[in-house]
Amino acid sequence: MLREHRDPLQHHDAHRLDDGHILYAALEPLLGEQAAAVRGGVPGSKAAGGTVWATRSARSGRTANSCGPGVPRTT
């Protein structure tokens, strides 16, 4: 079986689930209050506009054109 799922923010980690879905890591931009709430980091190292990039878990659908809702992010 061949299928394709595209997510421009997908990270390289992925795992095929028993139900045929794919669980994978993706990036998610945090802005404003969400970005300000992230503790730690290196001062002055934020992306343009104060964006902080967080990792979230996502789940693809079982068919090439189906994409299930994302799993709650793991930030």
Score class of each variant (00 low, 15 high):
3 R>N: 12
3 R>H: 06
4 E>P: 08
5 H>P: 03
5 H>C: 07
6 R>Y: 13
8 P>A: 07
9 L>V: 03
9 L>G: 11
9 L>K: 10
10 Q>G: 10
10 Q>S: 12
11 H>Q: 15
11 H>M: 15
11 H>A: 15
11 H>S: 14
11 H>F: 12
12 H>K: 10
13 D>L: 15
13 D>M: 14
14 A>E: 04
14 A>L: 09
15 H>M: 14
15 H>N: 11
15 H>D: 12
15 H>K: 14
15 H>Y: 12
15 H>A: 15
16 R>M: 14
16 R>S: 13
17 L>I: 04
18 D>H: 08
18 D>V: 03
19 D>S: 04
20 G>M: 00
20 G>H: 03
21 H>E: 07
21 H>S: 10
23 L>W: 00
23 L>V: 01
24 Y>R: 02
25 A>N: 08
25 A>S: 11
25 A>F: 14
26 A>F: 03
26 A>K: 12
28 E>P: 01
28 E>S: 11
29 P>K: 11
29 P>E: 05
30 L>Y: 10
30 L>N: 04
30 L>I: 04
31 L>F: 14
31 L>N: 12
31 L>D: 10
32 G>Q: 04
33 E>K: 07
34 Q>T: 03
34 Q>M: 08
36 A>N: 04
36 A>F: 03
36 A>E: 10
37 A>G: 08
37 A>H: 00
37 A>Q: 05
38 V>N: 00
38 V>P: 03
38 V>D: 03
39 R>L: 12
39 R>M: 11
39 R>H: 09
39 R>D: 07
40 G>D: 04
40 G>F: 02
40 G>Y: 05
40 G>C: 06
42 V>N: 02
43 P>I: 05
44 G>Q: 02
44 G>H: 00
46 K>S: 08
46 K>F: 02
47 A>C: 11
47 A>R: 13
48 A>W: 06
49 G>W: 06
49 G>T: 01
49 G>V: 03
49 G>S: 03
51 T>R: 14
51 T>Q: 11
52 V>I: 13
52 V>M: 07
53 W>T: 12
53 W>M: 13
54 A>N: 09
55 T>A: 11
56 R>N: 09
56 R>I: 11
57 S>H: 11
58 A>H: 03
59 R>H: 00
59 R>W: 01
60 S>L: 06
62 R>Q: 08
63 T>I: 02
63 T>Y: 10
63 T>N: 08
63 T>V: 05
64 A>H: 02
64 A>L: 09
64 A>S: 14
65 N>E: 14
66 S>F: 14
66 S>W: 13
66 S>P: 10
66 S>H: 15
66 S>K: 15
67 C>W: 15
67 C>S: 15
67 C>D: 14
68 G>A: 11
68 G>F: 04
68 G>P: 00
69 P>H: 11
71 V>Q: 09
71 V>F: 05
72 P>S: 05
72 P>Q: 06
72 P>H: 02
72 P>Y: 04
74 T>I: 13
75 T>M: 12
